[in-house]
């Protein structure tokens, strides 16, 4: 029986590994961090949109399925340094602090995922300059009871609970200025979800969302959007955040209320940047090591987006999940299962 190499221990990689192992294949899972769960674990995602169920409910069973399966060998804190050979005979060098080993594989699954966009480059938003300008990933960590603030939303500058909160949509996505003209596909629903969570926890607070379009295309997303407006009185303003300044020691944002045709200056206590998705370092590294094709934004390019969405430009190397482009957790799990099926059928031939 051939062994399959899975690169990346995020949602997609975990699902692909456990599905392949259940089909009887031996799997070697290589993860660069010392924990499994990818971005979900890294940023301590608390609740998932649109059902507001705990992220742990979804991710923990997938992690357990991998850890409890004897067919899966997990290398944490490791990376794939070199790969040689062609399908179905690959030789991969796996490196970690203890040394390196070379193993043979029949197929390779790349599930290296994404990284949150770093908003430092959007200088006008003052991320890194103003302490109270935070990213949505940081808010996720804060809202998690296991996080740094024990589940309380606190201003990083003084530890107070903010009263007026503004959320900027599309930071680092739909933006040619930073080279990411694509939609991040999750920012809208994540911000709506976070706004609801904040309002639920602090009913006195006011949450304002500055958006260009609310793209609520997923299951139950549009309903969540309606709920945010009707039940939680979250104010959605059509206008992209233009800049953040400090006025009388308070954060002040500027935007245009495009429906009124007038610019506005709005003083708030905290600004959350809905940072989009960018191709992760792991994805770029994997593409270099394996020599597979990337698109203009660093994401991996399938052989054919419609016909063979999980095959890379090289035979025997498969791609899945958010390394192909922005994707939500629900679809990453689907991708993980899909790529497992594809690998199994290719190894049979």
């Amino acid at each position: 029986m051939k062994t399959v190499l899975v690169i990346g221990g995020g949602v997609t990689g975990l699902k692909a590994s456990s599905e392949l192992a259940e089909m009887g294949y031996n799997v070697t899972l290589v993860e660069k961090e010392d924990y499994l769960g990818g971005q979900v674990a890294k940023h301590k995602y608390y609740k998932l949109a649109p059902d507001l169920r705990l992220a742990g409910e979804v991710i923990d069973p997938v992690i357990k399925a991998v850890e409890n399966n004897s067919n899966i060998k997990v290398y944490k804190h490791s990376h794939v340094a070199a790969v040689s050979g062609n399908a179905p005979e690959f030789k991969a060098k796996i490196k970690n602090s203890k040394g390196e080993s070379e193993e043979n594989f029949g197929a390779i699954v790349v599930a290296t995922g994404f990284e949150h966009f770093d908003p430092t480059v959007k200088q006008e938003y003052g991320y890194g300059r103003f302490k109270d300008v935070v990213t949505n990933a940081e808010v996720e960590e804060m809202l998690n009871p296991g996080g740094p603030t024990n589940g309380e939303l606190k201003r990083p500058s003084d530890g107070e609970t903010p009263k007026k909160i503004a959320i900027f949509q599309c930071v680092g996505s739909r933006d040619r200025q930073v080279g990411n003209p694509y939609c991040c596909r999750v920012g809208c629903v994540v911000s709506t979800k976070q706004a609801i969570e904040i309002k639920e926890k602090y009913p006195d607070s006011e949450v304002y969302v500055y958006y260009m379009d609310m793209r609520m295309f997923g299951r139950g997303w549009e309903e969540l959007y309606g709920k945010a407006m009707e039940e939680y009185e979250i104010i959605f303003t059509r206008g992209r955040g233009a800049e953040v300044t400090l006025k009388n020691q308070q954060l002040s944002l500027r935007a245009e209320e495009t429906i009124m045709d007038r610019p506005i200056q709005h003083s708030v206590d905290m600004i959350i940047l809905a940072a989009g998705m960018a191709a992760g370092e792991g994805t770029i590294e994997a593409a270099n090591v394996l020599g597979i094709k990337q698109n203009d934004y660093g994401f991996l390019e399938p052989k054919d987006d419609f016909v063979s969405p999980n095959e890379s430009s090289k035979p025997g190397i498969f791609i899945a999940g958010a390394d192909k482009g922005p994707m939500d957790i629900e679809n990453c799990i689907v991708e993980g299962a899909a790529v497992a099926a594809k690998v199994a059928s290719s190894l049979k031939n």
Partner: peptide, 24 residues
């Protein structure tokens, strides 16, 4: 242009010239 309002939101002029709005 996709009418997001970044230009007019951050414009220098509205403090001095009322109603100046490039997006519009």
């Amino acid at each position: 242009c996709y009418q997001c309002g970044t230009c007019s939101g951050g414009c220098t002029l509205p403090d001095f010239v009322d109603k100046f709005n490039p997006r519009r």
